[in-house]
Amino acid sequence: MAVIKTEDLTYVYGEGTPFRKVAVDHVSLSVEEGEFIGVIGHTGSGKSTLIQHLNGLLKPTEGRVLIDGEELWADKARLQAIRFKVGLVFQYPEYQLFEETCYKDIAYGPKNMGLPENEIDRRVRETARLVGLSDDVLDKSPFELSGGQKRRVAIAGVMAMEPKVLILDEPASGLDPKGRSRILGLIREYHKEKKNTVMLVSHSMEDVAKHCSKILVMNKAKVFCYDTPAAVFGRAGELERIGLSVPQITRVFARLKAMGCRVDDDVYTVGYGREMLLGALSKQTANERESEA
């Protein structure tokens, strides 16, 4: 069964005013359990609005959202319980830190869930380990930490709620390259370890290509496409027309193919490209040897 399902989800900002804007326009999609979905789109394409619907922070103007087959907003009393199934990490999540110590801050979500003390402790320590925070950091004030550490504490705060679905809105923005790859790495680690569903909103095609099993491309409040990375990047021309680009490595291979090299053009990670090139090279040397003999 799909863990997230939206049916004709539509959201309109400022209905009845001159500032009326359709932010999400009849979006229907379903996300299966255990998937790693990348969400890509321009600023203002509706991706942030879309994900805020998935845990009931926004109420759809039209359409429905189903989490685990249960409709959000059908019963307001259940909203809170369903909300705990979908963990949402906002952009710049470090701005939500408020407790005296990192430990307490990570424990804030689990505490709101009404979990017993020892369970909270287990979750805090486990997620702290997962995001690479040592015990002495847990006792520090979150305001003393570096930017990357703060970010990890904030993400841990949501992970500790152990949601079935973890949604992250540009978790790596504003960090240096090292911090970026560290955050993205720990998200992949989390996905591998927990086998939970993850949705990653990003600007970077490279990040999404590297990690995701499926990609959702949003354009002008609508779903542009929702498919495997290979299928999505196969439509490079169309993506470029809406102002998004395919990963650099995909472009390199498309050019190589156009120049007559015998390579596929569905390469979208550097690792796969390397294998492909090595394979093509060894084939070529083998052929040359044969012809020499």
Binding site: R83, F90, Q96, N112
Partner: peptide, 16 residues
């Protein structure tokens, strides 16, 4: 705007 954002973030963490 900022208040809205922080409120949403804390609500997502179960603040009522």
């Amino acid at each position: 705007e900022e208040t809205d954002k922080i409120m949403a973030a804390q609500k997502a963490r179960g603040a009522q």
